[in-house]
Amino acid sequence: MVQDLLNATTLASIYILFALGMSLVWGTIGILNFAHGSIFMFSAFVAYLVVQQIPLGMPAVVAIAMVSGALIAVAMQYLVFQPIMKKAKNPHAGELQLVIGGIGLSAIPISFAQRSTLSNPFGFSGGSFETQVYTIGGVIITNVMIIILIAGLGLGVGTALWIRNSKKGLALRALGVDPEVSAMMGIDRPKLALATMLYSGALAGLAGALLTYYFNSITSESGDTLLLKAFAVIILGGVGSIFGVILGSFILAFAEFGVLLYTDGSWVTAVSFGLLFLILIIRPQGILGKKEVRRT
């Protein structure tokens, strides 16, 4: 039982790592980034390419993935999302253009990775990192699990507190509520948006590297699976709420774990969509979300 709880918490941490950056970007600068899964995958892929040549340890691999993720995200923001937002006549029209832009963007890295790996799974077995298994009081935990737990929970809570308490965090929240008024209050939207994308991309890279260690290998399409789960996580908790991401991740991870443990498991894909559908009917703003103020 303790083992199952620990494993489910690790899964929740994985969801936090993946969804955190996405939620931040959506809740503040209003971009629902469909390319987040691609950034996640391609950062891990870049690290894999390097590890194939140089047997690096975990810190270096993670650093490479984070830098790649940040660079890709910034490039996307600068070249695609920012021009779309500048052009949009109204937020509603812009919203869809952003989604489509993200969809187009996501196809490009996936296609490169597929070509390069011939769609084979890839991992960091070329590196020097070894998974260690510890048994404490009958409970099995690995060093990768410990790192994921610390990173997921630490970054989740840290980011949430930062958004809540810092001045920059206030500026970001203001952007999420009313971009026009916040611009009048002297908030430099493009600059802040770029910084947010950078952070989100780095988080995607971190998630990509750690997940590849945890699962041992991923494929070019792995990001898409997580993207759909991240939608559920973000909306469950409430768009714009970072604590919501943590809560949503736990709910989804434990629900999926429960379904896998106590049923034959074939409906597990339906869990995320089912939860998403239910919450939208019962409480569209999510569990911790504030009432929608932006749209009609």
Partner: peptide
């Protein structure tokens, strides 16, 4: 003893393994 069919989108197998 059991035959568990999981979707190919499953990424973490800790739960079915525990079972």
């Amino acid at each position: 003893l059991s035959s568990t069919g999981l979707p190919s989108s499953t990424q973490d197998f800790k739960a079915p393994i525990s079972k």
